[in-house]
Amino acid sequence: MHAPAPSGSAQFWLGVRMFLPVAVSIAAYGVVWGVLAGQAGLSVLEVALMSGLVFAGASQFVALDMWTPGALPVLSIVIAAGIVNLRMLLMSATLRPLVGHLSLPQQLGAMFFVSDEQWAMTMAEVRKGTGSVAFLLGTGVLSWFAWMGSTLCGRVLGAFIDDPTKYGLDFAFTATFLALLLGMWRGRGDLVPWIVGALAAILTSRLIEGNWYIIVGGLVGSFAGALAETIRERRHVA
């Protein structure tokens, strides 16, 4: 026997409630990003625009590392954002069955909210047979407010720190990236892309001036990771 189909607004609030614990951890990331954004020289308005319009944490962290006010490497910042966010191509592709019945502008509007945690939770609901657009929007809207609010908080609080190097805060970038990286560990398949990416970046940073080593390391490392994975699968089949 099936329960009556829940209404859209009930699904929306179910998404909000279920996403609440995740939103708390997103907010912790957001505060860290906001503090670092202040260090990198972003104004409060720039923080609000970037968090509100880009709304993609990993690429925003990378942008901060490249942010040098006065001589902003605009092209490499935009390219890096594209590369880091490329994975969302596959995420939004899997949401097509969920939003297929909507008009195109509505479908595209829903896609704006696609992000790692929110997508994972919605897909888990879809697999249970209970996913809906309203659920997707509930998690997405909460995620957006958590990110926007926490990054602004971090930016405003971070302004009270006068000389970052005096307190070792210049190391906050490296520490944050290292922790983010360790959090992405999914198994031994990650070893090849990480090591190759690191080595390619070190080599490139010595040979080419600027921030290109991030893009080169990211592309070469992930290519090597995919190569290693493909070779392993072939062996497995044979």
Binding site: V84, W194, I214, V220
Partner: peptide, 25 residues
Amino acid sequence: TTGFVASWMKHVPGAVLAALVAPAI
């Protein structure tokens, strides 16, 4: 959704972070 290109895209964020961290350390 599977195969080489999908696997490549999946590995990008980790490789980018490794590329950020290693030269800094």
